[in-house]
């Protein structure tokens, strides 16, 4: 295991001490490069009130290459496939070492607020989205309700 760069320590400290509203990221105890992430669905989107679990991993080359992020909670979204993989430019070609965990998670939250069926990852979802947007949004709401809304007893 490569040594933990100072930058990762700094970022982690800041994520814990000054968290982004609606987003949490907690490093795993065994592997400080592995984070448990939750993102709250944007209020104006079909994912509102949902709290989505994600996992995030900082590869050895980070920050020279992008973190690996994946949804763990099922989500109905044209740019997120059923394995939770995310189609987002800043996670691929548009990654820059000037970005950081915090900005990436914000981008993902923004992606929830602005699905882009023209550049799909989940093809079937994208087709639904384009042919009948209202229905697709209803499905997204339903899925959010089903999988992402925390049960009432466990706050």
């Amino acid at each position: 295991m490569a040594a933990l760069p100072k930058r990762i320590i700094k970022e982690t400290q800041r994520l814990v001490s000054d968290p982004v509203p609606g987003i949490t990221a907690t490093p795993s105890e065994e592997n400080l490069r592995y984070f448990q992430v939750t993102i709250d669905g944007p209020s104006s989107s079909p994912y509102a009130k949902g709290r989505f679990d994600l996992e995030l991993f900082l590869p050895d080359d980070y920050p020279m290459c992008a973190p690996k992020v994946r949804f763990l909670t099922k989500i109905y979204h044209p740019n997120i496939d059923k394995l939770g993989r995310i189609c987002l430019d800043v996670l691929k070609d548009n990654w820059s070492p000037a970005l950081q965990i915090r900005t990436i998670l914000l981008s993902i939250q923004a992606l929830l607020g602005a699905p882009n069926p023209d550049d799909p990852l989940a093809n079937d979802v994208a087709v639904d989205w384009k042919s009948d947007e209202a229905k697709a949004i209803a499905t997204a709401k339903e899925w959010t309700e089903k999988y992402a809304v925390p049960s009432t007893d466990s706050s």
């Binding site: 795993s28 996992e55 995030l56 991993f57 973190p67 992020v69 994946r70 394995l83």
Partner: peptide
Amino acid sequence: PARSLAYLG
């Protein structure tokens, strides 16, 4: 699980 991400992204 951390490793599995290495490919997913």
